[in-house]
């Protein structure tokens, strides 16, 4: 039997959050954590609340904190996260909890929108596609694949402290995705919007973001590139 300790909070009935324990029969299978949640909801307690959609690690719905580490429940096998018998599941840290494992992601999305995450090009569009060499396109690898699951930003102490002013690893990864795109012409405008003590420079290179990213992306490296661009621009 797997011992699961779940973070519970219903704003309508609970004064404070609490941990609830479930003894779950997994029949010895190495399930994904999402499968365990589905099992609990179907067979133990229908009121357990979490987000999920694709169940294959591409939609970013089920970012959770599992035994102390952020990740996607649908691609985290028990064998990877459970040491001993116990699985502790909490919501992503640092964001307001709406209910159980569901957090309010408004601040996270607001930081994403702040970097103007869309291509800007001042010249008229050609009749076919804008040309881009494979080498130029390769600059976007490791950046465009972000699924906005928020595992990185909610593991970042700088984001915990300043979620309203520090863009955070996810937003900055996207900021660099457009700075790095040979088709984008708004580099100067993008950099000037980021050029303040908080937006970028609150990153202290802790690299929690790199450790938890379920897609294997490296926001710290992208932030480093933005810093260099900002510093080169200043001199």
């Amino acid at each position: 039997m797997l011992q699961v300790s779940l973070y519970r909070y219903n704003p309508e009935t609970d004064e404070a959050p609490y941990m609830q324990d479930f003894s779950v029969d997994t029949s010895g299978r190495d399930l994904m954590v999402l499968d365990v949640l589905e099992l609990i909801k179907a067979e133990y307690d229908g009121s357990v609340t979490y987000r999920r959609s694709c169940r294959e690690g591409v939609c970013g719905s089920d970012g959770l904190n599992m035994n102390g580490k952020n990740g996607l429940a649908c691609v985290t096998p028990l064998s990877e996260t459970v040491k001993g018998e116990k699985l502790v599941i909490r919501p992503l840290p640092g964001l307001p909890v709406i209910r159980d494992l569901v957090v309010d992601m408004s601040l996270f999305y607001a930081q994403y929108e702040k970097v103007q995450p869309y291509l800007q090009n001042a010249s008229p569009a050609p009749a076919i596609e804008r040309l881009q060499s494979p080498e130029e396109r390769a600059q976007l690898d490791g950046l465009y694949e972000c699924i906005l699951c928020a595992c990185c930003s909610t593991s970042c102490p700088s984001f915990w402290w300043n979620p309203d002013r520090f863009v955070g690893p996810a937003g900055l990864l996207q900021a660099y995705r457009f700075l790095a795109d040979s088709r984008d012409t708004a580099t100067e405008e993008r950099l000037s919007k980021l050029d303040d003590p908080f937006s970028v420079f609150r990153c202290h290179g802790i690299q929690n973001c790199v450790n938890v990213c379920p897609k294997g992306l490296n926001p710290t490296k992208a932030i480093g590139h933005i810093r260099t661009m900002l510093l080169n621009r200043a001199t």
């Binding site: 076919i128 596609e129 040309l131 060499s133 494979p134 130029e136 976007l140 465009y144 457009f178």
Partner: peptide
Amino acid sequence: AIFELEHMGLPFSRTEEGRI
């Protein structure tokens, strides 16, 4: 419709000629 998506920024893989 495809060229519009490319102009919007969709990061298509590329050929040596720089096309989609």
